[in-house]
């Protein structure tokens, strides 16, 4: 419980700090927004008036406070490119990215955990070689190429989905799943390769541990040794690893979104950066850092639950 409290306090502090750095990067370090908004021959009075109106003449911490309040209530200002509130712009995109991330995460966990356990039990040289070859290939294929292959095979040859025709989940949930599963596979495949390798290594290491010998001396079958003793030990580092994977795919996959013509966060970020649409970039940066910090917080709590040796900070 104390661990939970400490981690939660640390979480809040980290989030505030991350928000402050974002605030500094977008509000303070760039040149005066009032000057940038007016034409070059604006008088000092005009600039001063606009600064007053934009709230730029308030003390730094007060500005940070109102920035934070805005972020918490979902008010990120207005997109300079689309002239609509950033929150409105983002809400649709989030749906796409989050559902893509969740779907691929289910695929990653659902496939790599059983496959990793299987891979760890493979004993023959040939079998080990095959697993290594397979996972290596999965990791090595570039995502855009994989996306194109999937589009070609399932979209054009087999006609299992219509390339580029995204179906919103609200309209037709199964149609949505039928479409989204393909980009999700494209996102998941390299990560599955990595997770299998990681889990296999972790399991193999644990199977050689002394406590396994003890368990066998008590009369445990191999199956019981694996499920009751080894798995929980082996999964601790894997949880941290999967968290990193989840954070990465939640931040949006620019390439996959582009290939499958999905309007997700990744694509929006790419477009907004090139259009210098700072309010949008700022909101996405905040979102991404929050995702990473929150997921790490979750991973810490899960690991602590799984491994009692993890010390109090």
């Amino acid at each position: 419980m104390r661990y939970f409290m400490k981690k939660t306090i640390a979480l809040v502090v980290t989030l505030l700090l991350a928000a402050f750095l974002t605030f500094l990067a977008f509000e303070v370090i760039p040149s005066d927004a009032a000057v940038a908004n007016l034409s070059i021959d604006a008088t000092d009075e005009e600039i001063e008036a606009l600064r007053e109106a934009m709230g730029l003449n308030r003390p730094l911490m007060v500005r940070y406070g109102s920035f934070l309040l805005g972020a918490l209530t979902g008010d990120f200002g207005e997109s300079t490119q689309y002239r609509i509130p950033v929150s409105e712009l983002l809400s649709d995109r989030f749906g796409v990215t989050v559902s893509l991330a969740l779907l691929s995460f289910v695929l990653i966990v659902g496939i790599s955990v059983p496959f990793g356990i299987f891979a760890a039990r493979v004993k023959s040289k040939a079998g080990e070689g095959f697993v290594a070859f397979l996972t290596q290939t999965m990791m090595a294929v570039p995502p855009f190429f994989l996306g194109m292959l999937i589009t070609l095979l399932f979209g054009i040859v087999l006609r299992w989905f219509t390339p580029g025709a995204y179906v919103p989940a609200g309209e037709d949930f199964f149609g949505f799943l039928g479409f989204m599963i393909f980009p999700a596979i494209a996102v998941a495949v390299p990560k599955i390769g990595m997770s299998v390798r990681f889990l296999q290594g972790s399991l193999k290491e644990q199977m050689g541990a002394d406590y396994v010998r003890t368990a066998r001396s008590k009369g445990c079958t191999n199956r019981r040794v694996l499920w009751r003793h080894v798995l929980r030990n082996a999964l601790v580092p894997v949880v941290t690893f999967l968290t990193m994977v989840m954070a990465e795919i939640l931040a949006g996959s620019i390439v996959i979104e582009q290939v499958f013509n999905l309007s997700g966060v990744g694509r929006l970020l790419a477009v907004s950066i090139s259009a210098r649409d700072f309010p949008v970039v700022r909101a996405i940066v905040l979102y991404t850092t929050a995702v990473v910090v929150l997921l790490n917080y979750g991973a810490d709590l899960i690991c602590r639950f799984m491994d009692p040796r993890i010390k109090e900070l």
């Binding site: 406590y211 010998r213 003890t214 001396s217 009369g219 030990n233 601790v236 491994d307 009692p308």
Partner: peptide
Amino acid sequence: LRLGLSGKEMAMIFQEPLTSLNPVQ
């Protein structure tokens, strides 16, 4: 036969007390 005897009729203690117990149980 081993599964039936180990832990019941015959048991073993190892050299490394620090690592011979499962750390997460």
